[in-house]
């Protein structure tokens, strides 16, 4: 619990650093055609599946590792970019992982996770 709060505290500081990113973002679907947007969405979905290995299916697991499903897009985006820029005090593996993705991908992930329902019942997944 303490850890989540600690990271949460850092986010506030960092979110203001990256404040300019809050509005526009850089998801390519605005600028390019449907096919490109679809390709990007598929890519984000693929990356998000890797995240599930620590954050649970659709990043819904509730452990010391934060749940991402349903988190505010701007906050998660700021966090991910801060991890990548090594500006997240106390961070462990996330900077090393975040550096494996482009800023656009990290922004896309933030958006993707924000649109997941954190309360979604797995029973309903396939039926």
């Amino acid at each position: 619990m303490r850890r989540i709060l600690l990271i949460g505290g850092a986010v506030i500081a960092v979110a203001s650093l990256f404040g300019t990113l809050g509005a526009g973002g850089s998801a390519p679907e605005d600028a390019t055609g449907d096919a490109e947007a679809e390709r990007f969405a598929e890519r984000i979905r693929g990356i998000a599946m890797s995240c599930a290995a620590c954050h649970g299916t659709e990043a819904r697991a509730e452990t010391a590792i934060p749940r991402l499903a349903g988190q505010p897009e701007a906050v998660v985006r700021a966090q991910l970019l801060a991890f990548k820029a090594d500006q997240m005090p106390g961070a462990t593996v996330m900077p090393r992982l975040a550096r494996g993705y482009t800023n656009e991908e990290l922004a896309g992930l933030a958006r993707y996770f924000s649109q997941l329902d954190p309360q979604f019942e797995p029973e309903a997944d396939t039926r």
Partner: peptide, 17 residues
């Protein structure tokens, strides 16, 4: 200590996944 706690959390999350 944080990485040890995250190890436990990782195990819980991946076995859920």
């Amino acid at each position: 200590s944080r990485e040890a706690a995250y190890a436990e959390a990782w195990y819980a999350a991946i076995t859920q996944d």
